[in-house]
Amino acid sequence: MFDALRFAGPTDLVLGLGTGLVFGFLLQRGGVTQYRVILGQFLWKDHTVLRTMLTAVVVGSIGIYAMLALPGVFGEVPLHVKPATWVANLLGGAIFGVGMALLGYCPGTGVAAIGEGSRHAIFGILGMLFGTAVFAELHPAISGTILKTADLGKIRFPELLGLSPWVLIAILAAAAIGLFAVLHKTERPKA
């Protein structure tokens, strides 16, 4: 009955662990593994989460699109785009947000929060396993409907809008910097 317990190759395991160590270290140092920081974001008081995520996305996108533009240097860099089944993305995201405000963590920060000493995060992770089990039971009933409806495919904005990714990245970077400036002005100093 333990035949399901298989391991991937050792290289994958070591690289995965190393990636997780760096990711967890960064999340904890950024403060986004704290309940009060995540709720502070949703209450529009502390904008650490937006700053971290938008910076990660802008910096990440520059590197990924540079690699895609230079296949002679980097070879074929595979993309990992998820299908835009927008009804499911929207509905799933909406449910996710309700749960995240109640729990105060998302899956990655919840696991990391346990490492930082959060005990209630442990119950959050148990809840996540329960939610996954419930979803698996619901899946046969919704796989042909909600999850498949309005499927635009594995599409990205450059394809959808017919624009160069660099135009979009420039707009995104400008918007992020503008938002950071506005937030910096409006954010009240911490007590």
Partner: peptide, 13 residues
């Protein structure tokens, strides 16, 4: 909250 988080995450993929 955790249950809703993963229910939503799995629905949204």
């Amino acid at each position: 909250g955790g249950a809703l988080v993963l229910l939503g995450a799995r629905m949204a993929d």
